[in-house]
Amino acid sequence: MKEGQTVDTEKAGWEPRIIAFLCNWCSYAGADLAGISRLQYPPNVRVIRVPCSGRVNPYFIIKSLQHGVDGVLVSGCHPGDCHYINGNLVARRRFAIFKSILEFMGVEKGRVQFSWISAAEGERFSQVIKEVTEEIKALGPGKRFVKEI
């Protein structure tokens, strides 16, 4: 998209591409449950399964943005439920700083999101995906950090 073009004019027909890093033990199982329960949610999300939200290096997120995805969601177990005891708690600090720096640099709030979803929360999973997709849709295509060559 050219600079200066408004989001509205190009929104027609545009669908965001979103990458979701889901932890194997909770959020991925939550996504499974949503599937088994035949819950509807937008198809914009591509799932990458990781062992733990603590495995998600900020590189993954930045590289996704650089390659032109419109949004990233990272989801793990609720605090206290981590399969690796405290992987998500260490990750939580990392993500807090990461998100703050990202937004400080001028990346739109909502471009990169985080959630806790347990294996039992199929309903919640579909709800979160709906919300995230809607929010990223409203932001328009991702442009910050995108590398065009």
Binding site: V90, K99, F114, S115, V128, E131
Partner: peptide, 16 residues
């Protein structure tokens, strides 16, 4: 060092 540790009640308003 803060990024090598955590507290159970660390702020998490940014997480859905």
């Amino acid at each position: 060092p803060p990024m090598a540790t955590f507290k159970i009640d660390d702020p998490q308003e940014f997480i859905k």
